[in-house]
Amino acid sequence: MVFNSQFRALLAIIQREMIKFWHQKGRLVAALVRPSLWLIVFAAGFQNVFGVSIIPPYETYIEYQEYVIPGLLGMVLLFNGMQSSLAMVYDREMGLMRLLLTAPQPRWFLLFSKLVSGTILSLLQAYAFLILTVVFQIDIPWSGWLYAFPAMLLGGLMLGSLGLLLSVYIKQLENFAGTMNFVIFPMFFISTALYPLWKLEESGAEVVFQLASYNPFTHAVELIRFALYGQFNAVSFGVVLVSGLLFFMLSVWGYNPQRGMAKFVKQKR
């Protein structure tokens, strides 16, 4: 009975996100244009600048365009995770958050449902981008499409949890620009999405190298990179799993009325 009730709630939240996504067709286009531009413009322009040596999981020299694919998939997951955060803030401003939080379901489950619905959208967009890579004649093994699924699922859940956590502290939609500057861009640029770690070390950017080494987004990208070539990166799996759990638990704590939702629900006496 309880399972039925929770399953219906989960479906309701997923269905609502899907309907909203369907009505926002520009969102899918934006999600594809962003990494595609990086792939066409950035990768094409810099492939001679950023030579990539043979590093795992690659067994031969690869073109830079192929190197950046996992990073761009990570970018899709990262932006959608943050978009989910934006949607939470929007729901809060519109009063819809109250509706969600006053449903007779465990709060952690409601937040988990939001996380799952956001991650499903992330995966749809990531696979849509993978289809585009075929158009651009980038050679990703077909088996990698399958192996990448659990990696992108885990990465999507981790980045979605980060989005949930941020939504606790972003009080207004206008603050989202700050999220771009202080979360999305640093996470993306200080990672292995665009260049391998050894490049950072070799160039003497020790601080950036250290930051990138510990950046959970780096590990989400590496997990996807290895999975695309049928390999498993245990360290990255561990970092993404632990980071995701930590972000989610902090989100649940953040949405706990015991700590006073006054922090993020507009106060009215």
Partner: peptide
């Protein structure tokens, strides 16, 4: 509990029925 908040909490982009269905399912109906 059934509640109507002071601030409207309808998803204006959805139909009336879709709003009701969403709420009903959230409550396990």
């Amino acid at each position: 509990i059934g509640v109507v908040f002071q601030q409207s909490a309808l998803d204006l982009g959805l139909t009336v029925q879709a709003n009701l269905t969403f709420h009903g399912r959230l409550h396990g109906l």
